[in-house]
């Protein structure tokens, strides 16, 4: 089992003002911001995140971390998929086109790609955020993944056509209104006696990642999960976002957010 890739030419972290070029409302609780950099984008990898400064929200003191959802190098733009959870994200959801947003990026490690051909991407709700960028990058390497996404109900599903473009999309809904009824972990692909994926990538609620990690272990499949712990800085100094690992407490913002489940 491989350790999550952490050796790389480190990209310099930047503090930069981006311009909002799109603000797309997906449903009552989710929206996408497309942000354009004044300069060429640095090397960005799926799993990495940005820290966004939220202005005009007096109760929001710290930056807000978001996974990179999609990258358009030619346009020097990135997309963030954001769930409205509190005042900070609520304020961001009302941001106007051409407003500026200050970002610290690129932050964190990233999913290991390129060494496996048959892979599964499993995401629940807003946890799909880093998986679209991952599917994009896998495609560039000639890999067409299976993308399994779980939702509460049909009306919650967004960007299905995008996932279909990069891979084979499977859907579960809790009420059975679309795809298979049940949770992601109850999908029929897991009922096979022997799963033949070489790696599973997962991002979603903690119980889902734990369950997927367990399934992977049973089948002897490498599994990488992207964790989301609350953090103050995002670049390794506050030590607030730690998660227990076999190497002791590690920082989700720096040694993560991507961890191999064997290390957790």
């Amino acid at each position: 089992m491989s350790k999550v890739e952490t050796t790389r030419i480190p990209e310099k972290k930047l503090i930069q003002d981006f311009t909002v070029i799109q603000n797309i409302r997906l449903n009552a609780r989710h929206f996408i911001l497309e942000l354009q950099s004044p300069d060429q984008l640095p090397g960005l990898f799926p799993g990495q995140f940005v820290q966004v400064l939220v202005e005009h929200s007096p109760s929001t003191f710290l930056r807000r971390p978001f996974s990179i959802h999609e990258v358009n190098k030619e346009n020097r733009s990135i997309r963030l998929l954001i769930q409205i959870k509190g005042h900070g994200t609520e304020t961001l959801s009302h941001i106007h086109i051409l407003d500026k947003l200050n970002l610290i990026y690129p932050l964190g490690n990233f999913f290991t790609t390129g060494d496996c051909k048959k892979v599964l991407l499993a995401g629940g709700g807003c946890g799909v955020a880093p998986l679209l960028f991952l599917a994009q990058e896998l495609n560039k390497k000639g890999i067409r993944p299976i993308i399994l996404t779980g939702w509460k109900t049909k009306a919650d599903i967004f960007e299905a056509e995008k996932y279909q473009q990069y891979g084979e999309l499977l859907i579960t809904t809790e009420d059975g209104s679309e795809g298979e009824k049940g949770l992601v972990t109850q999908h029929s692909i897991f009922r096979k006696e022997k799963l033949d994926f070489e790696r599973i990538y997962c991002c979603g609620p903690d119980p889902m990642m734990k369950a997927i990690g367990k399934i992977s272990k049973t089948h002897g499949i490498d599994c990488e999960v992207s964790l989301e712990n609350t953090m103050a800085c995002g670049f390794g100094v506050c030590l607030c976002c730690v998660t227990p690992t076999i190497h002791g407490n590690q920082r989700v913002c720096t040694e993560g957010p991507v961890f191999n489940t064997n290390e957790l």
Binding site: F61, T230, M231, A232, L239, C240, C241, V242, T243
Partner: peptide, 9 residues
């Protein structure tokens, strides 16, 4: 150090 969660805004 202490267990997570260690921070509250």
């Amino acid at each position: 150090g202490n267990p997570y969660p260690r921070m509250a805004e």
